[in-house]
Design a protein around this nucleic acid. Structure first.
Lengths: 124, 124
DNA sequence: CTTCACTAAGTGCATGACGCACCTAGGTAC
DNA sequence: GTACCTAGGTGCGTCATGCACTTAGTGAAG
């Protein structure tokens, strides 16, 4: 019962959900990276995403014109880079929604097929 | 209205669905790479996956002990590597199912939040 | 006043997966 | 003999992530 390697690499992570989710959070309420990290990881505490990954995604999204940032100096604490969504960002968010609907369907089909096979007693 | 770069990298591809899907297809019916490529891409013709990627995933899955392969020489055409799912593979498939259910929920939450904000007229 | 902790935003490096392009090889049809 | 389909790959470049580490402002504790 041991194939020599640990458990497995059948990762089904939300992977490409990062950018759409950040876009949605900023669409909901403009905010800065640190706060977005908290909110992002609060959405799904079982799948924590690295701060570095979030920050890099935000910079990339800005260079792609999906968001714009401005430095905000607050009374307490270091300056923060405040992000707002652009028109382009809203468009891409809508496109992401369409793709996510598609992906949801893919997952449903997958699950349905699995359950059907399970009932029939697949090869095991 | 042009940020200098093409459209965007807000990809929401099924990405990590590759391995679970291959596992499911083999679970359904043992078969070889070439056939799996056809079946895989028939599931979603809008998101074609490279043959090379499929073959590499199959070899990786075998080295991870999720499937086993045997060479089958057929009357017509080149020899083919026939894949079967292992016990370990069935276990991981079940785990993948759990993760996919979770991811489906994430997507649903995302879509629900988006529609709610849309109704309220998010910042635009 | 030094140290600790929290906020805030990163960067460097190694790793891992994928797409693109290319290759080998058997078999069949023209 | 040439072309095409089946079948299974590999080499290379690219891109995204995780892990670890750095910088810097501020407030509290000792």
């Amino acid at each position: 019962m041991d194939a020599g390697k640990p458990a497995g690499t059948v990762s089904v992570s939300l992977d490409k959900m990062i950018q759409p989710t950040l876009l949605l959070l900023i669409y909901k309420k403009p905010s800065h990276g640190y706060e977005l990290i908290q909110n992002f990881n609060a959405l799904d505490p079982t799948e924590i995403v690295e701060p570095g990954t979030i920050y890099r995604n935000l910079r990339r999204m800005e260079s792609d014109g999906l968001v714009v940032s401005t430095w905000e100096t607050s009374a307490s604490g270091p300056a923060r880079r405040q992000y707002e969504i652009t028109t382009r960002g809203s468009e891409l968010l809508r496109e992401a929604v369409v793709r996510l609907e598609h992906q949801k369907k893919q997952i449903q089909d997958f699950l349905q097929l699995y359950r059907q096979l399970e009932k029939e007693g697949g090869n095991r």
